[in-house]
Structure formats: C-alpha cells, structure tokens
C-alpha cells in the first residue's frame, strides 16, 4: 500500500526528526536547569544538619561560636572524639548496645521465619483468621502494653538486665512476620509441592527450599531489627537505670550531663557522629536490600 520512500524523502524525514529532537531537548533546557537547581538546593538543605554536626565535631572551642558559621574547621580537632571516651565510658555504651541489638536480630529471624512459613506456605483451618489477628496487633500502641510489661519484668527481676529488650524478639514481631510472609507466598508453590511428594517435611522445605530463596528478605528483617534496636530509646529508658548498663541512646544523655552547657557542643556532635556512623555504613553497604524491604512492606500493605 504505502509506496516505498525515495532516499531523498527518507533523508529529509530523518533530518527533520533529528532537528525536532534537538529542538525538543532545547525547549526542555530551562526545565532541566530548574529541576537540578531544586534537587541540589533541597539536597544541601537536607544534608546541612549532618554536615554541621560533622563540622562542629571537629572544631576547637572558639570556632564553635563564630558568626557566620565556619563549615570547614581550621585547625581540625580530632581529639574531641578521643576525649569523649575518657569523659564517659563510651566504649562500654557501644558494647552494651551491641549486647542486645545483635541478639534481637537473631531472635526475630528465627521466630518470624517459622511463623511466616506457617502463615504463607502451610494450609490449616483458621490460618487466615490468626494471620489477620497478627496483623491487627500492629495497630496496638506500645503504650498500652508498656506498663503491664514493665510490672511483669520488674516482678521477675529483669529490670536492669537486657532480657526485656531481647526475649520478646524470640516470640515474633507482626511487622516482620508480614514482610516475610509476603515474600514466602510469592515463591512458586510447585517448588515445595515437588519436595513434599518426595517426602520432605515442612522443616526441611523451609530450611532447604524457602530460606535459600528468601535471603534478601531475611537480610531486610535482620537489618531493620538491628537498626531499630540500635536506635531505640524508650525501651532502654524504661528498663535500664544503671549507668554501666546504658546503651548509646542513654549514654549520650549521660555524656551531655558530664559537660558544662557552654563546652558541650563539639563533644556531643562527636558522640552523635559516632552513634550515626554504623547506621550510615550499614546503609551504604546494604542500600539495595534496604530500599527493597521498605518497598515490599509499603506497597503490598
């Protein structure tokens, strides 16, 4: 039907298309400039508090109070980072934080994997109702259970131990169960059916088929929990009152209290930088896993 184009016409069309693209690109230039200006400006605004923290943490006392503010300290004073360790037992606080955040990560991994397998891969009467109940518990504010939990833990002598922070992690967490269940449910049913025909038990199917495939989801759970515990303030605040038990979250306050208000800033910024650093490092190493985890829970919700 359509007659073949002569070379001339085809060439003219191509030229027109290229010109058209250029014109289009040219027309978009102001938009692009505006876009980059907005992103860079906002990016700097969002980064400013953290850059300011880093900068202050490396200043000597007079530089802290200069107006307009100095961004690049001169001289640089890394000694701030050393002095906080002699001022308060920061290394101990650091270690204390690890003492419960690492075990809780294991706790939720073990417990939530089993429960998520039950909700996502096993068929049993009443399963959906129980799963719904599990999801519903996410709506209950911690404040409702906080007081009886505190009283119970007090009665069994667990105040000023890490048990109240660690033990519940071994009994599942609705949010992670949900996250893992969504992931497990997306693994093709045929894989476990074949294994079942071969006489595999559920335990083996979970360990040998599901878990190897679910590594990214497991990493997300471990990461979220570790960071959640690392960042937690209210839990330690309620259960821990002895300074030698303090994690960083409480230790920071104890460091602040050990300085005069006037001298405190470079030291507090050094301590904050130290507390933030592991979180940033972990985030950079595991960025993709992290983002995927949020997306899964956010969208399938």
């Amino acid at each position: 039907m359509a007659s073949p184009l002569t070379p001339d016409v085809a060439q003219a069309r191509t030229r027109k298309r290229i010109l058209g693209q250029d014109a289009e690109a040219l027309r978009r230039v102001p938009g692009r400039v505006l876009l980059y200006a907005a992103v860079v400006l906002l990016g700097l605004t969002f980064a400013a508090p953290l850059l300011w923290m880093l900068s202050t943490s490396l200043k000597d006392d007079p530089q802290v109070y200069v107006v307009p503010p100095i961004w690049v300290p001169n001289p640089i004073r890394p000694l701030n980072y050393v002095e906080i360790f002699t001022r308060r037992p920061m290394a101990l606080y650091f270690l204390n934080t690890l003492k419960y955040s690492v075990p809780t990560a294991f706790g939720v991994l073990i417990s939530c994997t089993l429960v998520a397998y039950s909700f996502g891969r096993m068929r049993w009467p009443g399963r959906d109702a129980v799963f719904f109940l599990c999801l519903a518990t996410m709506m209950i504010p911690f404040q409702v259970t906080m007081i009886p939990l505190y009283i119970t833990f007090k009665n069994v002598g667990w105040i000023n131990t890490y048990y109240p922070l660690v033990v519940p992690a071994f009994f599942g967490n609705a949010y992670y169960i949900f996250l893992l269940r969504q992931f497990f449910a997306s693994i093709p049913e045929e894989l476990s059916d074949a294994a079942r025909v071969d006489g595999c038990t559920d335990g083996r199917i979970l360990a040998q088929i599901i878990l190897p495939l679910a590594k990214p989801a497991l990493a997300v759970v471990a990461l979220f929990q570790f960071m959640g515990a690392w960042n937690d303030y209210l839990g330690p605040l309620i259960y821990l009152s002895r300074d030698e038990m303090f994690p960083l979250a409480l230790g920071l306050q104890s460091l602040r209290a050990s300085f005069q208000e006037k001298l405190v800033w470079p030291y507090m910024m050094a301590a904050s930088t130290m507390m933030i650093l592991p979180v940033i490092v972990i985030f950079f190493i595991t960025q993709r896993t992290f983002i995927e985890g949020i997306t899964v829970t956010g969208l399938k919700g």
């Binding site: 429960v115 049993w124 599990c134 409702v144 259970t145 009994f171 599942g172």
Partner: peptide, 28 residues
C-alpha cells in the same frame, strides 16, 4: 494434622501474643 503442624510453626507468635500482647492488654 495440618492444624497441629500449622500451629506448631506459628507457636512463637502465639506464645508471644499471649505473653506480650493479650495478657498485658487485659492487665492494662
């Protein structure tokens, strides 16, 4: 049988629910 196995795997959460949610809510 399926029910038993399902509950067995869900046991950590069921116990956790009783100890760390249901009981505290009633007590509260």
């Amino acid at each position: 049988n399926a029910l038993g196995k399902g509950l067995l795997f869900a046991l950590p959460w069921l116990l956790g629910f009783l100890a760390f949610t249901a009981y505290p809510m009633a007590a509260s």
